[in-house]
Amino acid sequence: MAIMRRFLVLAPAAVVVGAVVFLALHVFAGSGQLGLLELGLGLLIALLATATVLAVILVATGLLRLAGIRSTWAALGLAFGLAVVVVGISYAGIAASMQPGNPGFDTSLLLTAAGVQLPTWLTFAVGLLVGDLRSRTVRGSAAVPAT
Rank of each mutant, 00 (worst) to 15 (best):
M1T: 15
M1A: 14
A2N: 13
A2V: 08
I3S: 06
M4R: 11
R5W: 13
R6C: 02
R6S: 14
F7Q: 09
F7V: 08
F7P: 05
V9Y: 02
A11D: 11
P12S: 09
A13S: 10
V15A: 08
V15R: 03
V17T: 12
G18L: 00
A19F: 00
A19Y: 02
V20D: 04
V20S: 08
V21L: 01
F22R: 02
F22H: 08
L23G: 01
A24K: 01
L25C: 08
L25K: 02
H26R: 02
V27H: 08
V27S: 03
V27W: 08
V27P: 01
G30N: 07
G32L: 03
Q33G: 05
Q33A: 08
L34C: 11
G35W: 02
G35L: 07
L36C: 00
L36G: 06
G40P: 07
L41F: 11
G42I: 02
L43A: 15
L43H: 06
L44C: 04
I45T: 12
I45W: 02
A49K: 09
A49Q: 10
T50P: 04
A51K: 11
V53E: 09
V53N: 06
L54K: 08
L54C: 09
A55H: 11
A55C: 12
I57H: 04
L58A: 15
L58N: 13
L58G: 15
T61S: 15
L63D: 12
L64Y: 02
L66Q: 15
L66E: 15
A67M: 13
I69R: 10
I69K: 06
S71F: 03
A75I: 04
L76W: 12
L76T: 05
G77N: 10
L78R: 03
L78N: 03
A79L: 10
F80E: 09
G81A: 15
L82V: 09
L82E: 11
V84E: 12
V85A: 14
V86Y: 03
V86N: 04
V87M: 06
I89F: 06
S90D: 07
Y91F: 14
Y91T: 07
Y91A: 15
G93I: 00
I94P: 00
I94F: 01
A95W: 00
A95F: 00
A95P: 00
A95D: 03
S97R: 12
M98D: 09
Q99G: 12
Q99W: 12
G101M: 00
N102H: 09
N102S: 07
P103E: 08
P103A: 09
G104I: 01
D106G: 12
D106S: 15
D106I: 03
S108Y: 13
S108D: 13
S108C: 00
L109W: 10
L111H: 06
L111R: 10
T112R: 07
A113L: 11
A114V: 05
G115M: 04
G115I: 03
V116Q: 06
P119I: 07
T120P: 01
T120A: 09
L122I: 11
T123H: 09
F124R: 08
F124V: 06
A125R: 14
A125K: 13
A125S: 14
G127W: 10
L128N: 13
L128R: 07
L129N: 01
L129F: 03
V130Y: 05
G131H: 04
G131F: 00
D132M: 07
S135N: 15
R136I: 00
V138S: 08
G140D: 10
G140V: 00
S141F: 03
S141T: 05
A142H: 10
A143Q: 07
V144G: 00
P145E: 13
T147Q: 11
